[in-house]
Amino acid sequence: MMNFSYARAESVGEAIAAVSGDPHARYIAGGTNLVDLMKYDVERPGRLVDITRLPLREIAATAGGGIRIGALVPNSDLAYDARVERDYPLLASAILAGASAQLRNAATTGGNLLQRTRCYYFYDVGAPCNKRAPGSGCGAIGGVNRIHAILGASESCIATHPSDMCVALAALEAVVHVAGPGGERTIAFEDFHRLPGDRPEADNTLRHGELITAVELPAPRFGPHHTYLKLRDRLSYAFALVSVAAGLELEGDTIRDARVALGGVAHKPWRVPEAETLLRGQKPSREAFGAAAERLLQGARGQGDNDFKIELARRAVVRALEQAAAATPQRQSDKSIN
């Protein structure tokens, strides 16, 4: 871990000024990923700007019937917030599927979006990685890659985004509020994370100095027809091999609309609007769900160790949609999968 200087911001403006003026400066909040990466010397910021004292801790109702979640709301507070439990149980479930109680207490809403990949090669400074050291090559291609991407990968990077919460946020079509040296802007969740392409070092579309101030959710939908299904190598405290956030709007026994997002399979939460369109007007059935899964996984490509994820993701999508349709969302403490 490199030594660094430290600054504590008292206001959003002060924070932005401190980071945008220094190419080696980074914001720090919960620190659950950044401090970890700094210990591995993967991240080597020259200066940290502490934003934890900024007034970004509120969960407030919006005019549109949704909520606006301050960037510093801890993951656990968000998951256990009464409104979130009632109106956005998919989000609560996804959060509780991730990490541990301790990490959720420290990790923040904004920080969760900025988690970096768990790729072994990214984490190991003794190995090549284009994301960490652009131009050094991708160690995972042709290497150990059972946790890697099957969708949207590139010749230079096959890393996945590790967040659970973000998979739910994708299905819920959240909007990210950002403040930067050029003022404020909003980013559709869809457009927040990016695919690696030939610039895998960039996980998302934030510009240097931009600060996430809030994540906004539109008015609640799906009622009881949602689930977050996470499959992993041990039953808790492990990153997803594959996860699915699903929500259905049912009218009688007909699907009026659907949202499905996949985690653990790509450099960003994976959504395919055409797959959701396929479900519209259908009766819930394994056939209909299977067709949606096919569409979601169209173009999926394995790298060897992770070939199984294609079939696993296909089956997980079907199961998640069954759970959503039956209004029997996966419980995160009961490890049997209904």
Partner: peptide, 27 residues
């Protein structure tokens, strides 16, 4: 582990359990 991956360093900060290995003292 010093990486937030085992919980051995768990303490209560302002009453909440956290991994103290990932908490910078200055913060």
């Amino acid at each position: 582990c010093d990486q937030g991956q085992c919980g051995a360093c768990t303490v209560l900060i302002d009453g909440r359990r956290v991994n103290s290995c990932l908490q910078l003292a200055v913060m």
